[in-house]
Simulated assay, not measured.
Amino acid sequence: MRTVRSWTGIAALLVAAGCAAAPRAQRVDAEELNCMARAMYFESHRSSREGMIAVGTVVMNRVDSTEFPATVCGVVGQRNQFAPGVMSRDMNSRSLPLALEAAGAVLQGERHPQVETARFFHAASYRAGYNNMHYVATAGGNAFYEKRPPAMVTQPVPLPPSGG
């Protein structure tokens, strides 16, 4: 796995961003931070912190599920689940500090309030033809959804994007 910068530099960015002072502050594993930041960076179109937090919430919902790997890196590295090259491509834009800060915040407990327990998302512009997708949020260019029995789906189309 390729690293973006030295982990000392990443830690300095997180401290500067205020992540170390989070209310539920705890030790953030550098490898898990890297994997989470990669998912956010490549999946949220680097458009907003809200979109990154929403992607991170899905990652953590999957970690907490018995249907997916039990680690952030296991979830993000799972074949055909995230953007191609998510674990190997370079992260080199002005959005990297935001992705690292948001990743640290999610690893310390922050969650997107509308995503709740959703474990799936796709590009907001994509129109799927399935009848079991219950949409809960649209943020950062993605539509987030839960899979439900068709009779339990009350929101069958993506919601309008939320602010941010």
Rank of each mutant, 00 (worst) to 15 (best):
A70E: 09
V59G: 09
D64R: 11
M87D: 10
N80I: 04
F82D: 00
G109Y: 08
N61H: 12
V58R: 05
P97Q: 04
T57H: 14
V76K: 02
S95R: 13
G74F: 09
N61W: 06
N80E: 12
S88A: 10
S95C: 13
V75D: 11
C73S: 06
V115I: 14
Q78I: 03
Q78G: 09
A102F: 05
V55N: 03
V55R: 01
V106G: 04
M60C: 11
N80M: 11
A102M: 10
G85R: 06
M60I: 10
N92G: 07
N61S: 11
A99S: 13
R62L: 05
Q81P: 10
V72K: 02
T57I: 09
G104W: 00
M60G: 08
V115N: 10
F82L: 15
N61F: 05
A105C: 14
V86Q: 07
H112E: 04
N61R: 08
H112M: 08
Q78A: 13
G77E: 11
E101A: 07
A83V: 15
A103E: 00
V72D: 06
T66F: 14
R79P: 12
N61Q: 12
A70W: 03
E67V: 04
L100Y: 06
F82Y: 12
S65H: 14
V55E: 02
A105F: 05
A83D: 05
T66L: 15
V115C: 13
S95V: 02
S88W: 06
L96W: 09
G109A: 07
A99M: 07
A70Y: 02
A54E: 03
N92W: 11
V58S: 06
D64P: 02
V115E: 08
E110L: 05
V55Q: 03
H112T: 03
L107F: 09
A103Y: 00
A99K: 00
P97N: 05
F82C: 09
V86R: 04
E67S: 14
F68D: 11
V55K: 03
L98Q: 13
V72H: 05
A103I: 00
T71F: 07
S95I: 02
Q108D: 06
R94A: 12
N80K: 11
M60S: 07
M91K: 00
E110G: 01
H112G: 07
